[in-house]
């Protein structure tokens, strides 16, 4: 077991014929992910990955031909909202959007539409999902995690790799790693992922990696104290970040006194989360 993606996930890729998308499509495929098709308007009929994966002109056509249930989106930011609307309208149940820099108002429209359609979104501006040994849906390097019982949820990319790597160094494996992304408006949030981890029998422990900006970590803390039976270790990035500055991620900003790392750490600690002083400490807190 795992959450969101596994070996049965039938994945299509929107925008995987471009340089970046193709690079990651090759790695997902080599990992064993069930990548069944690509979608690029105007390139229908072509084949990629040495003729193993067909390309379609639309998500609808790809879905009809392959019965795919998930999509990974690499299309450029200005076309990303359209790609997500298209996937939702074609009946795809799970959308993972890697693209960074999507306009905030586009994301508000997308999120409100997907909620009405009951379609799950992971991202945007995220590294995607990794269920070690089963499916790599995104850009997380496959070799830095081994299968196991730790569920990981994070707003960051390379910081998450850092934690996965530290877990692996100590022989600790991962059930699923979920990158929820660094944008202010995203799909799946901490609470959604925590709920799935709580229900997943394979997951015995959880790692939560947050950062400054917004109040999602505080809400997660409240959820943890009420509903989570599994131990949680956490880390919050941005303790030294100055207020009013966007720290790389569109969502990582302290505004009007909210979004401070200190408040998040305090809330998590109050909920019984073991908060690490630096990321390499996380595996030790899970022992």
């Amino acid at each position: 077991m795992s959450i969101l993606v596994d070996k049965n996930t039938k994945l299509i890729g929107q925008g995987i014929t471009g340089r970046e998308g193709l690079f990651h499509a090759e790695r997902m495929f080599a990992y064993g992910t069930n990548l069944v098709a690509g979608v690029t308007p105007g390139k229908g009929g072509e084949w990629i990955l040495d003729g193993k994966v067909p390309v379609f002109d639309s998500v609808k056509l790809a879905k009809e031909a392959t019965d795919a249930n998930a999509t990974i989106i690499f299309v450029p930011s200005r076309f990303a909202a359209d790609a997500m609307f298209e996937a939702a309208d074609a009946g795809i149940e799970l959308i993972i959007t890697i693209t960074e820099g999507i306009p905030v108002q586009d994301m508000m429209r997308v999120r409100n539409y997907l909620d009405q359609k009951k379609v799950r979104l992971v991202g945007p501006n995220c590294p995607g999902l990794l269920t070690p040994g089963e499916a790599k849906v995104g850009i997380i390097p496959g070799d830095i995690a081994i299968p196991g019982d730790v569920g990981v949820v994070s707003r960051s990319g390379t910081l998450t790799y850092e934690v996965l790597y530290a877990l692996k160094e100590l022989g600790m494996g991962v059930s699923t790693c979920v990158g929820i992304g660094g944008d202010p408006i995203n799909g799946t949030n901490f609470i959604d992922a925590l709920r799935l981890f709580e229900e997943d029998p394979q997951t015995k422990k959880v790692v939560l990696i947050g950062e400054i900006g917004g109040t999602d970590e505080e809400k997660a803390a409240e959820f943890i104290s009420k509903y989570l039976s599994k131990p949680v270790a956490g880390f919050i990035a941005g303790q030294t970040a100055p207020p009013g500055k966007r720290m790389g991620h569109a969502g990582a900003i302290v505004e009007g006194g909210t979004g401070l790392a200190a408040d998040k750490i305090k809330a998590l600690k109050a909920a019984g989360v073991r908060v690490a002083k630096h990321p390499e400490e996380i595996p030790l807190l899970l022992r």
Partner: peptide, 17 residues
Amino acid sequence: MVNGAGLAMTSMDVIKF
């Protein structure tokens, strides 16, 4: 000099720590 925003913030934090 770090790659990734989360890791860049974390590197600052760890220096401070």
